[in-house]
Design a protein around this nucleic acid. Structure first.
Length: 302
DNA sequence: ATTTGGTGTTGTG
DNA sequence: CACAACACCAAAT
């Protein structure tokens, strides 16, 4: 299938970015495998199947960084920089956080957690709408109840959609899921939409998980863009300093990817650690945020 | 670089 | 109730 021949919308002010991530993903995969040889722009572009100039422009448009800068942004050293002073992030947030209610990273986020009773019912009586939508990181699966977003997952391409949906549905086996992209689309737009969240409209989350899991996810919500914490930082902050590995599992079970920024949890030593939706995507998100931080206006011109 | 032993929580039977 | 699985970590090959 030669979908790559799709004509580019030459002078649209709102370029169709939905196809970008597919190329970006293949570029990141190549760079990850070959970083030691410092591949040239030509080599990279040839592998992805684009001209060097197009490759460069694609990356710039996607995240504001060139491929070379992107590679810098996901290196070991840079990750260690993100972790600088990481313990104090959660400490400071803890002082403010309890009184302040939920604000967090660059989005305005509020959340409620399901009660233990709700959890036991495994979603019985819960009506959930879902939809797939293009996002900067591939197809995004959004799941929402009447009270707010309960799930956000990613996949690459139509073929992976059933698996992504099953992975999410398994978390609330007795819930009734109905496809309704009309309802989920505006929720996703609020997350990836242009610029800052439209004045005062918070993103409402519904966290469905055990008490321990919710405490972990709450800690993640306190990590701002451009920073990161280690799994053991989180363990310490929630009062179970030796439960590092359990924290890792809980982070991995985060149902609302990206909004609950599980990609900002790294290994203590600067290794990136794992990611439920693939390490490539974790790299993509970290690099994308690095670019957005450097050029805050990139997203606002849409 | 890779292995090893120690971890808390959750889901399964 | 026991047990395996897990997006980890520190120390020792």
């Amino acid at each position: 299938m030669h979908a790559g021949l799709m004509p580019s919308p030459a002078h649209s002010l709102a370029p169709d970015r939905s196809g970008d991530y597919d190329h970006v993903r293949r570029a990141i995969e190549f760079l990850s495998a070959a970083w030691r040889e410092q591949p040239s722009l030509e080599t990279l572009a040839a592998h992805v199947g684009l001209s060097p100039a197009h490759m460069q422009r694609l990356f710039k448009r996607w995240c504001g960084l060139s491929p070379k800068e992107f590679v810098q942004a996901i290196t070991y050293d840079h990750a260690r920089g993100l972790l600088e002073g990481s313990a104090s992030i959660l400490e400071a947030a803890h002082e403010v956080g309890l009184s302040g209610g939920g604000r967090l990273h660059d989005l305005l986020v509020t959340y409620e957690a399901m009660t233990p009773g709700d959890l036991k019912r495994r979603g019985d009586g819960l009506a959930l709408a879902y939809g797939f939508h293009p996002s900067p990181f591939g197809d995004a699966l959004v799941i929402a109840s009447e009270r707010g977003i309960t799930g956000l997952a990613f996949c690459d391409g139509e073929a992976e959609r059933p698996a992504a949906l099953a992975d999410m549905a398994r978390r609330w086996p007795r819930a009734r899921l109905t496809e309704d992209p009309g309802r989920t689309a505006p929720l996703l737009a609020r997350i990836f939409g242009t610029g800052r969240s439209k004045a005062g409209q918070p993103v409402r989350l519904v966290l469905i998980g055990s008490d321990f899991e919710v405490r972990v996810w709450d800690a993640l919500l306190k990590v701002p863009t451009g920073r990161a914490v280690s799994y053991s930082d989180i363990a310490g902050a929630i009062g179970t300093p030796t439960a590092v590995r359990a924290v890792g599992s809980a982070v991995g079970r985060n149902p609302i990817s990206f909004v609950v920024p599980c990609h900002r949890a790294l290994r203590r030593d600067g290794n990136l650690g794992g990611y439920h939706w693939g390490i490539t995507r974790k790299k993509a998100i970290i690099g994308w945020e690095a670019g957005r931080l450097r050029h805050p206006d990139v997203a606002s011109r849409a």
